[in-house]
Simulated assay, not measured.
Amino acid sequence: MQAPDILCIGSVLWDIIGRSPTAMRVGSDVPGRITRLPGGVAMNIAMTLRRFGLTPALLSAIGRDPEGDELVAACARMGLDTAQLYRSEDLPTDRYMAVEGANGLIAAIADAHSLEAAGDKILRPLADGRLGSEAAPYAGLIALDGNLTEALLADIASSPLFAAADLRIAPASPGKAERLSPLLSHPRATLYLNLEEAGILCRARFEGAEAAALALLERGAERVLVTDGGRACADGRRGLGVLTGTPPAVLVTRVTGAGDTFMAAHIVAERRGDPREAALTAALRAAADYISGEIGS
């Protein structure tokens, strides 16, 4: 397999998603479909990058159980580089479970305990010479998700192994957004957040993405992209200000993975040299296509 174009570090697991075309509330019991697909933030980003023609390498923890073997085989069939995965003998393969209705995500539970337990073992290829070392740190693109522990994310923020990388960071969920605080002021980091996650990092509430992006820049961020569902999103960059874009209006058929698709499409657009406004437009279009079902899972 060719050298990877980008490293995707974080959760690679099975997504178990129940979807119904009916609007739902707490306690609803409705007909629908239940699917199991490869998922996790790092995995979703990698799959989208692959659809755009890039070759991503996965750095994550996957068990040596039957579910893990199936997952690694599925990754390989999609053309993802699995050579750097940490395969654990005693940790089970992680899972994510969500329920979605016509009115969006109803509830979700992420079981990423094995990834958390593996800790810095997943980063060994960046230190032992396979992908880099402290003396010659990896200098390419890295997509990093917030499913890692708070302690490991804090180590990454100051680690020489990440000093030369173009670091693209996303929380795994609003509940894990605060874990990214040590990385907020990293000089080579771009953070991809939704409005709720931005508010958690700033310990504030915002009316819109533009205000959130400005606040994050004031708190020391070098680069942030803040989304707000179907409302305007914002791209803020230190010294260049904030620009905004509005997502295309589409029929919502799914939401799990939309933020990861936005992030991946934005990375691809910037990698090919698109200016900020064009990259933002391309990412919004890709996310809208995904939400409407025009891009396959």
Rank of each mutant, 00 (worst) to 15 (best):
Q84M: 11
S88G: 03
A102Q: 07
M78F: 08
R95T: 14
D90N: 12
L80T: 08
L91Q: 04
A76E: 14
A83G: 02
Y86G: 07
M78I: 04
A74C: 12
N103Y: 04
P92G: 02
A98L: 09
A98S: 13
V99Q: 13
D94W: 04
D94S: 13
A74S: 12
R64T: 09
Y96F: 15
N103W: 04
D94C: 14
G63S: 03
A76I: 08
E67Q: 14
L80F: 06
C75V: 08
A74G: 08
P92W: 01
D81E: 09
D65E: 03
D94V: 09
Y96G: 00
D81G: 01
L85E: 14
A76H: 09
E67L: 15
G101T: 10
L91G: 08
N103G: 03
R95A: 09
A76W: 06
R77T: 10
R95I: 13
L71E: 00
M78Q: 14
G101R: 07
A83E: 03
A98Q: 05
E70M: 11
R95E: 14
D94T: 08
A73M: 03
R95S: 11
L91F: 02
Y86Q: 08
D69P: 00
V99A: 15
Y96Q: 02
M97H: 11
Y86I: 07
E89Y: 02
A102F: 02
A73C: 01
T82L: 07
A73E: 11
A73D: 12
A73F: 01
A83V: 02
R87C: 14
D81W: 06
L80H: 05
M78N: 13
L91Y: 01
P66Q: 13
L71S: 00
E89P: 06
D65M: 01
D69S: 09
R64V: 05
G101K: 10
A76G: 08
V72G: 04
S88D: 07
E67M: 13
G68R: 06
G68D: 09
L85P: 12
E100Y: 10
L91M: 03
D65P: 02
E67G: 09
A74D: 15
P66K: 10
Q84D: 12
A98W: 04
G68W: 10
R87I: 13
L71D: 00
E89F: 01
